[in-house]
Structure formats: C-alpha cells, structure tokens
C-alpha cells in the first residue's frame, strides 16, 4: 500500500511512503521549513514528492495521479492558518482521486521520529513532545514508549498550555520526562498511519486540532457620544 502524507502543522511536508508487507519505504519526501508560505508551497511540494516516487512527470501536471492508495494528513495541533492548508489539500487530493482519507495527530509523528532516532525511555520515564503554539503557549503530548507495531503510546494530550504551568504540573506529579520538539515530517505521519493500520486503530477524522476557540467575543455596541 502506498500513501500520500501531508503535514503543514509547522512547515510544509509531503511524502509518498510505501508499506510492502510491513516493510516501509519512503519513496519521496519534500519539506519546506518556512512556517508562513504553506499556500504557496503545497502544490509544488506534492508534485515534488510524487515525482521523487516516480508517480508523475515533474512540475507539469499532466493526467491523473496513479499509484496512490490513500491520503494521510497531520491534524496538528498547530497555530491555525497553515494547518488548514495541508488538511484542505489532503481532503481535495483524496476527493479528486476518490481515495480514502485518514488523520493523524502530528505530535505522534514527532514522537515516532525520536524513537526511530534511538531514544529509549528509562523506567517510568515519558517523552514530552512540545511545539510552539504562539502567545507564550505550547502544544504538548506525552508518550510512554511504543506498542508492538511501533506506534507511540500517547499517555496525555494533545493540549495547549503555558510552558511554566506545564512544567509545574509535571513536577508536582513527579513525572520523569525526556523532551522533544522536532519538525514534523510527512514520512513520519505516513509511518504512524501504517502502525495504526497494523494496530487496527486508523482514524478517518481529519478535523483540525486547533485546541483554542476562535479569537472573537461578542461585544456590545460602543457609545460614540461623550
């Protein structure tokens, strides 16, 4: 099975990843770190990842894309604007080719990348993954190792909090933490999906994890006369 994975929770990352009977290969990956230009870069990033995987002829968009079986997208959490670009793109890519669509918590992919890099947790230790939520807050989730299919086991989160408050809570609870805050790679998003598949827990929910209400409050009309 071959999937197209997209994540725009931080930069823009697109990957084509194949799972051949449990052997997972990244066929193509295109990542741009810029956290501002999601709408500009998403189209070319998809073309680039597909081209690396040998699935389409470069930048010219000629003919339907063939050889993709499903689309997986990172749902964040992330500051709103860029996150939506990736989800919108994933929804439409799947719609255009009539493919199944799945969502993954982006922090799970960061945790997986840490474990793949060789992180081993001491007894009772957890992995804390954080990312910038702006407004002096962080998005976070904690993990207690991996299951038998390599899927990071999320023990708490995702949630949003001030880092000082978060630290205090963990300290009070006496939790031991390893910390990570890497970039989200789309190939890791795809790998999470394959691990979920093996664990029979894929998720068709692709709604964005904003974790905050929109910034708007109903206000009374202001007086204009003194």
């Amino acid at each position: 099975m071959r999937v197209l994975a997209i994540d725009t929770s931080a930069g823009t990352s697109v990957a084509v990843v194949e799972n051949n009977g449990g052997s997972v290969t990244v066929l193509g990956e295109s990542s741009v770190d810029n956290a501002m230009k999601h709408a500009e870069t998403i189209g070319s990033a998809i073309v680039d990842a597909l081209a690396q995987a040998g699935l389409t002829g470069g930048v010219s968009t000629t003919g339907r894309v063939r050889g993709i079986d499903a689309v997986v997208v990172g749902r964040g959490p992330a500051p709103f604007t860029g996150l939506r670009v990736g989800i919108a793109a994933a929804v439409m890519f799947a719609e255009g080719l009539n493919l199944p669509l799945f969502g993954v918590v982006s922090h799970d992919a960061v945790a997986l990348a840490e474990f793949e890099r060789g992180l081993t947790l001491a007894d009772g230790e957890e992995l804390l993954v954080t990312s910038d939520a702006r407004r002096s807050e962080v998005y976070w989730a904690t993990y207690q190792g991996q299951n038998e299919n390599g899927l990071p086991i999320r023990s708490a989160g995702p949630a949003v909090q001030k880092p000082a408050d978060l630290d205090r809570e963990f300290e009070l609870a006496g939790r031991k933490l390893a910390r990570a805050s890497g970039q989200v790679k789309a190939s890791s998003i795809a790998k999470i999906f394959f691990a979920q598949q093996a664990s029979d827990c894929t998720d068709g929910d692709v709604s964005a994890l904003y974790l905050r209400a929109p910034d708007a409050v109903p206000t009374a009309a202001k007086k204009v006369s003194g």
Binding site: A39, V65, R84, M92, G96
Partner: peptide
C-alpha cells in the same frame, strides 16, 4: 488571508491529483 489560503491549498491539490491546469 486565512480564508483565501484554504481555497488555494484545496485547489492546488485538486489540480495536481487530477492533472488539470489551474
């Protein structure tokens, strides 16, 4: 801006997937 970006991201992915000019 944020509203436009949703449509732009969606349209680009639809165009790439289906191989249509945008």
């Amino acid at each position: 801006g944020g509203a436009l970006m949703v449509g732009v991201g969606a349209a680009k992915a639809l165009a790439v997937a289906t191989g249509k000019p945008i």
